[in-house]
């Protein structure tokens, strides 16, 4: 069992984890789509970071003479919008925001979800039950309804949107971690650590959590996808990132009114969202197969 092999320090040259890692890598590489997803995602991140520096156009420069230039027709590779701003520059700058929101909201919701899941799974009892019932109750609200209701709290800016999305995304993680920890806690190595007098914090963080890492990594990847989608939904509905700061979601906000005359205004940012989310989902799928072969969805 890989769960126990890393714990016995007397064993010579612990071979099992490395073999497990190699196996995971091999299984991951068997999925051409998840490799492609990971590669494309990396490419998108790099393009959004460095792309705007290489472009001759600024994403906020208004050029009213060249508004509604269609893609592939002139100096502007992907055309211009209703104010004559370069679409490619805007897409890349918006990508910075949307991807940053996606990853930051993921990180935040993972930390919170893991903490709640750890506490509920480890201590159990009344406190654990109350925590998990709270999770159940929050999950009763459809996610967009909850996001919009919470949006009344905030002045929308990048940071508060990250908080908002994270605060609606931690429940699933908490559930996964709680179930894992509860199961792992009864295993021999955890009981042994407890018998050796290890502190609660040490058992949780050094013994239990590393063994639950596989489902956590998978759900983190899927969480990025969820967060990017959530940002686009609330920005599209007008409660997210506010213009002139571009995000993929708010670029779509008023594109609907130009659907007849300038469809690329709607098609391009939506395509960017779809691509990023698809990449995350494929990556998550590959990671699930690679890290957690037992839980594989056939």
């Amino acid at each position: 069992m890989s769960a126990t092999s890393g714990r016995l320090d007397t064993l010579p040259a612990r071979p099992a984890p490395r073999r497990a890692a190699a196996g995971a890598l091999r299984r991951f590489c068997r999925h051409p789509l998840s490799l492609l997803g990971g590669g494309l995602l990396l490419l998108m991140v790099l393009a959004c970071i460095f792309g705007p520096m290489l472009l001759p156009f600024d994403d906020l420069r208004i050029d009213i003479l060249h508004r509604f230039a269609p893609p592939f027709s002139g100096a502007h590779v992907l055309g211009t919008d209703q104010l004559g701003r370069d679409m490619l520059a805007r897409l890349l700058m918006a990508g910075r925001i949307s991807l940053a929101v996606g990853f930051a909201a993921m990180a935040l919701s993972m930390v919170f979800g893991i903490l709640v899941g750890l506490a509920a799974g480890f201590y159990g009892g009344v406190a654990g039950a109350v925590l998990m019932r709270f999770v159940d109750a929050v999950l009763c609200f459809p996610s967009i309804f909850l996001l919009l209701a919470l949006s009344a709290f905030i002045e929308p800016d990048v940071f508060s949107i990250i908080l908002l999305i994270a605060s609606t995304a931690w429940m699933e993680v908490a559930r996964i971690v709680e179930a894992q920890i509860r199961a792992l806690r009864a295993r021999d190595f955890a009981v042994a650590a407890e018998a050796l007098g290890a502190t609660d914090a040490r058992i949780m963080l050094r013994e239990l959590l590393p063994n639950a890492v596989a489902p956590i990594v998978v759900s983190a990847t899927l969480n990025v996808a969820h967060a990017i989608l959530a940002e686009s939904y609330i920005s599209y509905l007008g409660y997210g990132i506010q213009p002139p700061t571009p995000s993929w979601g708010n670029m779509l906000d008023n594109a609907q009114s130009y659907l007849t005359s300038a469809p690329w205004l709607a098609l391009l940012p939506g395509g960017a969202i779809a691509l990023a989310v698809i990449c995350c989902n494929f990556l998550g799928d590959g990671l699930r197969d690679a890290l957690d072969p037992r839980a594989r969805a056939r």
Binding site: S232, L259, P263, G270, I273, A274, V277
Partner: peptide, 17 residues
């Protein structure tokens, strides 16, 4: 997988278009 990744509102806009 693709269907689960597309934002619903964007798919709606594409259908309208």
């Amino acid at each position: 997988m693709v269907a689960l990744s597309i934002p619903t509102f964007w798919f709606g806009l594409v259908v309208i278009y």
